[in-house]
């Protein structure tokens, strides 16, 4: 029973975080800051939803597979973000920066 409630809380929180991330990619002004909003949905949102499902699954092969899905997302999402940001910077897309930013290059 307690586990059910916990998993519901996790699932709902994950869903809400996903929507917040979705709002973020529309509110932020440029590509680089949108990557941070997409980062919310890649990390904490995925973590919470998979944790909620894992609590429902209990100790089984399904839980192992959920952990594996999480691990793959955990390893691939920063790599994809880094590749995107790197490619964007090298193609000459300049980020909108704050005025008093220091040490900015190019």
């Amino acid at each position: 029973m307690i586990i059910d409630i916990l998993s519901w809380i996790c699932l709902l929180a994950g869903g809400v975080l996903g929507i917040i991330g979705g709002i973020g990619i529309h509110r932020f002004p440029d590509f680089y800051s949108r990557l941070h909003a997409a980062g919310i949905t890649d990390t904490l949102c995925a973590m919470l939803i998979l944790l909620g499902l894992g609590l429902q699954a209990g100790w089984s092969i399904a839980a192992f597979k959920l952990a594996l899905i999480f691990l793959f997302l955990f390893f691939t999402s920063p790599t994809a973000s880094h590749a995107l940001a790197n490619a964007a910077l090298h193609s000459g897309l300049t980020p909108k920066l704050d005025r008093d930013s220091r040490g900015a290059k190019s």
Binding site: Y32, H36, A37, P78, S81, H82, A85
Partner: peptide, 11 residues
């Protein structure tokens, strides 16, 4: 650095 939202390593 990239995993924590708010910072992305570019190069």
């Amino acid at each position: 650095i990239t995993l924590t939202p708010g910072t992305v390593s570019i190069e």
